[in-house]
Amino acid sequence: MTTEQKEDIIVKARGVTKVYTMGAEKIHALRGIDLDVRRGEYLSILGPSGSGKSTFFNMVGGLDRPTDGSVEVDGCCLRELNQKQLAWVRCHKMGYIFQSFNLIMTMTALENVALPRIFAGESPSEARDAAADILKVVGLGHRLTHLPSQVSGGQQQRIAIARALVNKPSIVLADEPTGNLDLHTGEEIINLLGELKSEFGITIITATHDMKMLSASDTVVWIKDGRADRVARKGEFEIAIGTIDGKTLA
């Protein structure tokens, strides 16, 4: 592989396995997943519940450690990092978007978005300035001092997207980002993610069931029984109602 090709890969998973011990029983959530994610790509992870999809997603996000194998993100092997280094990676390199938005309900939009910058060591006033700028980008410049409970679901997810992007991460991890939104709002969020992907040059990794998200994806990975069952690039998968390329969605 040439250096140029190497640099192109932002997430490199090799032989990722995860075994949970429940009493005497061992549960193999992941049985060795190899996956490369290219920089700037929009990748969707697909799989029924219990397939290991969420487990793998959490490994890539540095939220969980594999039993065996390695995950390299932007040139650093997550396995070798201590707690404080992992916190640094989560703060500077990753942005997280959750299905249920996970905004801090007692904080305004501005305070929510400023948090990652405060954790990165910025003063609260600088952090709020940066937060205000990014909230304008996601179209919420007029909602800065609103509490999450005072705005709609779609707007809450926009605040969450602003919060994920405020530290200029290399990767944004979105766990079912449209799961709690209606069809129309979900589509708006997908379009926004797509626009921000090109604008900020970020890589987006989502775990999803949403067909609309699949059509926006550059790559789709199917996870089944703890293995990467199939990887398809854009154009290699067709979307039909209820099925994808003959596979029924769970």
Partner: peptide
């Protein structure tokens, strides 16, 4: 909320 704060980089 605590989990979220840790995702955002809280120690």
């Amino acid at each position: 909320e605590i989990g979220t704060l840790k995702c955002l980089g809280a120690l």
